[in-house]
């Protein structure tokens, strides 16, 4: 007896296991997905490596991301600010803080902003920029009234 090769049922591939695998992959990516703004994950910034760094945390209410490239220039939303004009950068950071605080206060009317409002400056500085440039940015943040900051690093080399 010969096999019936013309039968359409016999030629159909079984797609159910393929669909299972695809759905599992989708679940993995959905769980690990992390929607970030461009300034939070700027590929042009090569972060230095520090094994002693802590994993990222999300305990702050608000974040301000500053990206410093290898030439010591701010990139992203603050690219039009130069480090040799710290007063302009300070004024911009102050305005940004006031705006964030106002929005926060509208959302949390009963809370004390001086005590409860946490805003963190996140500095993503390129590994090849100079220490003085990192300090100039921090100095502007300090004079703008920020009290908490984070330095972003890689916990291990990407290579």
């Amino acid at each position: 007896m010969s096999a019936n090769l013309e039968s359409s049922d016999a030629a159909d591939p079984n797609l159910v296991p393929l669909l299972d695998v695809v759905l599992q992959l989708i679940m993995f990516f959905m769980i690990t997905v992390n929607f970030v703004r461009v300034d939070q994950f700027d590929d042009s910034i090569a972060l230095p490596v520090a094994q002693a760094a802590m994993p990222l945390d999300n305990t702050a209410e608000e974040w301000i991301f500053l990206n410093l490239n290898s030439d010591g220039k701010l990139v992203g939303t603050l690219s039009n600010f130069a480090l040799d004009t710290p007063e302009k950068l300070k004024a911009h950071l102050m305005r940004e803080k006031i705006d964030l605080q106002r929005v926060w206060q509208e959302k949390n009317p009963g809370r004390n902003p001086d005590r409860d409002f946490k805003v963190v400056v996140v500095l993503r500085a390129d590994r090849n920029c100079r220490y003085s440039e990192v300090w100039q940015v921090l100095d502007s943040c300090q004079r703008a009234g920020y009290r908490r900051w984070q330095l972003r690093v890689m916990t291990r080399s990407a290579a």
């Binding site: 002693a52 984070q150 330095l151 972003r152 690093v153 890689m154 916990t155």
Partner: peptide, 14 residues
């Protein structure tokens, strides 16, 4: 997808 889990931070106070 971004493997941002490699990033860590150093906390500081001004």
């Amino acid at each position: 997808y971004h493997p941002s889990a490699l990033e860590g931070h150093i906390d500081g106070k001004l």
